[in-house]
Structure formats: structure tokens, C-alpha cells
């Protein structure tokens, strides 16, 4: 696929090959200290006994996972049934993250396509413009959204003024508010990889397809999309994963009436619950889910590259 995504290829010679191990050392060290060690610690914690009001007792226990999957009634002495509360919280988070990803893709793809089809010298300006709002801290942007979207906020005032609606729309403290917050927070993570992929796309392929009488829809689905698929997958991962664990948007825009995964875990460590093993177990289950999604996508990608090669 000349000019397509697969043309990056592997380097033919590596001048630094002998020093490779040493050059990777800093990266391994950082990853080891800030990623691997904490995750491993959480994995261990999730199998320990909880200490009342925070902390762990160094005794093996499956109680945390039991609590996640089995409901033994309010007083903990009924025969176990499936615990839906946490599944419901996970399901809500996954659903919200999926929706945010789809929305970001729907808006991000045309945007990236637009940027990639501008003259070369203009593209950097457009990319620059995309990133500007994200120089501001996420917390501040989320609070501002809260201000704009509220019942008596500028958005509702404007819509009422032009006569589109009679009563203010309630967006804050609903799932729609959370959704807007999520998809907006992570939109550039969709646009940028898509742009990188579309920019490398050889538009002569589209022309060729058109010359062969392919309708425009077919050109998009059969020629463009397959070629930029790696960008789509990268963008989707970059939006989906942080959305899943996010707790700023649910807290500030959703009113925290319903827990999302992030706030559920947070509550176990910093709330009155103080159940560290359970928080760790919930984090491990989340991690497993994310890894499974990533593995499916990675396998698809590998198949794709094999097909292309």
C-alpha cells in the first residue's frame, strides 16, 4: 500500500544498536518505579485483608473480589446472589466512555480530514489552534463548562433569547452533562492521531477510486478508512481509556449522584469506607477490562498489518 499507513516500515540500520540496552535504561527505570511497582502493589493489596478505616492486614483474603461479585444482603448474612451494584457502576462507566469515543470520532474525523487537506503551511496553524484550549488545566475547563451549561447559564440564556426553547434545558447534573464533559476533555486525543494518519494518506488513491466510478461513500469506507485505520484505533484508545477512569466530569458535571468507576475507587481510599483491598480489587478488574480491549485491538492491528504487508 504505497504511501499508505504501512509505509513507515522498520529502520534498515541502527547506528546505536550496541548501546540500545543502556539507552533504554531511563525509560525502564521510570516505567518500573511509577507504573509497574504501584500496579504490582495494588495487585497484592487486592488479595489482602482490609483493616478497619484504611490500611491492610498482611493476610491473604479473597474478600475484596467476593464483595465485588457477590451480594449477601444489607447485613451480609444472606445466601450470596450476584452483586449488581458494582457491575452497574462499571457498565455505566463503560457505556459513557464508549459514547464519548464515538462522539469524538464523529467530530474528530471530519476535523482531522479538513486539517490534513489544507496546504502544508496552514496545517501547523490548524493543529496549533486545536491544542490551544488544552493549555488550560482540565479542572478549570470542566468548571467553566459547568458555568456555561447551567440552568441560568449563558447557553440557556442564548437559546431562550433566540427562541429555540421556552424552558431552560437541564444539562448539569445529568448523564448528558457527564457525556459532554468526557468527550470534550479528550477530543484532541482523537483529532491528533487521526490527523497524523490522514496526512500520510495518499490522496491519489481516492482519485483512482473515483476514476473507477466508485461512489463517494464507497471511497470513504473502502479506501480511506482502511488506510487510516491505525489512526482511528489509536484515537479511540486514547479517548476511551481516560474516559473510563475519569472522575472530574462525573463529579462536577454529573453531580456525582451516581458513582463512576473512578469515584468508586477514590471513595475506597479517601472516603469513610476506607476499604483499601476493595479499591485495589476494583482497580485490578478495571485494568483487566482495559487490557482485554487493548489486546483485541492490538490483534486486529497486527492482522491488518500482515494483510497490508
Amino acid at each position: 500500500m504505497a504511501g499508505g499507513a504501512a509505509s513507515g516500515g522498520s529502520a534498515t540500520s541502527d547506528a546505536y544498536a550496541p548501546a540500545r540496552g543502556w539507552l533504554l535504561m531511563p525509560a525502564w527505570l521510570v516505567l518500573g518505579i511509577v507504573v509497574v511497582a504501584p500496579v504490582f502493589l495494588m495487585l497484592i493489596y487486592s488479595f489482602l485483608t482490609k483493616e478497619f478505616r484504611g490500611g491492610v492486614i498482611w493476610e491473604f483474603s479473597l474478600e475484596a473480589y467476593d464483595q465485588f461479585f457477590f451480594d449477601r444482603g444489607l447485613f451480609g448474612d444472606e445466601p450470596p446472589t450476584i452483586q449488581w451494584a458494582y457491575i452497574q457502576i462499571f457498565w455505566r462507566s463503560i457505556w459513557q466512555a464508549t459514547l464519548a469515543t464515538v462522539l469524538a470520532l464523529l467530530i474528530g474525523f471530519p476535523t482531522a480530514y479538513f486539517i490534513a487537506t489544507r496546504p502544508v503551511q496552514q496545517r501547523t496553524v490548524w493543529v496549533f489552534l486545536i491544542t490551544i484550549p488544552y493549555w488550560v488545566n482540565l479542572l478549570i475547563r470542566t468548571v467553566s463548562m459547568r458555568f456555561i451549561l447551567r440552568d441560568q447559564g449563558p447557553l440557556n440564556d442564548f437559546l431562550q433569547w433566540i427562541g429555540v426553547i421556552a424552558e431552560p434545558l437541564t444539562i448539569i447534573n445529568t448523564n448528558i452533562g457527564v457525556q459532554l464533559g468526557l468527550f470534550y476533555s479528550y477530543l484532541p486525543f482523537m483529532v491528533l492521531p487521526l490527523y497524523a494518519a490522514i496526512e500520510r494518506y495518499n490522496f491519489a488513491l481516492s482519485e483512482a477510486a473515483a476514476d473507477l466510478y466508485a461512489p463517494r461513500r464507497k471511497i470513504l469506507t473502502r479506501v480511506v478508512l482502511p488506510a487510516v485505520k491505525p489512526g482511528v484505533i489509536a484515537g479511540c484508545i486514547l479517548v476511551f481509556v481516560p474516559s473510563l477512569g475519569s472522575f472530574l466530569a462525573p463529579d462536577l458535571l454529573g453531580g456525582a449522584r451516581n458513582f463512576m468507576i473512578g469515584s468508586l475507587i477514590d471513595e475506597q481510599f479517601r472516603g469513610s469506607a476506607g476499604n483499601w483491598p476493595f479499591g485495589a480489587a476494583a482497580a485490578m478488574i478495571l485494568l483487566t477490562l482495559v487490557l482485554m480491549v487493548l489486546m483485541v485491538l492490538a490483534r486486529q492491528q497486527a492482522r491488518l498489518e500482515k494483510g497490508a504487508g
Binding site: G76, I89, N258, F259, A273
Partner: peptide, 17 residues
């Protein structure tokens, strides 16, 4: 006490589910 607190914790999670 611990037992009562744990039942309260359960109520609190159910409330926010």
C-alpha cells in the same frame, strides 16, 4: 463500631450505584 460502619458503607454504595 466496625460491623455497623461496614453496613453503613454498603448502604452508601447502594445509594450511589
Amino acid at each position: 463500631d466496625q460491623q455497623t460502619q461496614e453496613i453503613h458503607d454498603r448502604m452508601w454504595t447502594a445509594l450511589r450505584r
